[in-house]
Amino acid sequence: MKIIVLLKMVPDVVEELELAADGKALDTEFLRMIANELDNHALEEALLLKEKYSGTVTVVALDAPEVDDALFTALAKGADQALKITDGDGTLGTRAGAYRLAQTISSIPGLLPADLILTGAQAIDDLDGLTAPLVSHLLRLPQLGIVTKVSVDTTAGVATVLREFPGGVRGEYEVKLPAVLGIQAAKKPPRYVPVAKVRAAMKSQAIQSVVAPTAADGGVCLLPVEEMTKPEVTEHAQMLQGSPEEIADQLCEILAARGLL
């Protein structure tokens, strides 16, 4: 089975995010990038599928600061190949990023068709979870998002996936391969890889740099950012004090005053 994982670097919110002087982007001076958490789940799911059905896992990422660490970590975890798309300024939005990913993976001889293309269902800078649908649209493949379980019938070329919906509703789908899946959670939490293994991977394995084919535009509209602002600080929470009965009374009053009772 051939699996491609699309991995993207996102701002690490351990550092406070600051706005750049022009008010249109994040200040990159102290910004650190980290692999999108759900992309790590996509990688884990890919590795679990590889372990179960055998095959190969190729990780593809757009160039960004610290992306090499993320790719070597993926290789140390068991990915077979790591590709880094080197052109681009790392500030692509979701739509342009998805376009570049789709365009590049279709331009590499022998990479497609893959049985599955997995990526995170969301990212902190893509809460709409558009990467998987956009890539699938560009590659003309079926897509399912918010996936929490994947099993594959390799002879029939079909995957059975569990997709989550709001309100605790889940749906089981059958999808013909090849397909694109937006992974919400792997079957197991992303594995730990000993640092020594990553260091060994850095010595013995390589990240392949690939250049995206010249954009033929392809109808991609790069929405320019006009303004970026910090969230507005709203009023602080009101702490209710007193005995449980008094607190209950106060709570009822507040709810009634707001027209919620």
């Binding site: 351990v14 406070e16 102290f30 939490p189 730990y192 640092v195």
Partner: peptide, 29 residues
Amino acid sequence: LRLPEMPAELQKALENKLRYGNPMGESPR
């Protein structure tokens, strides 16, 4: 290395030490 799953708390602490230089995952800055 042979555990089916690394205890989550320990895994986080180790990953944090590598990335941030402290087990809590606080900003090195």
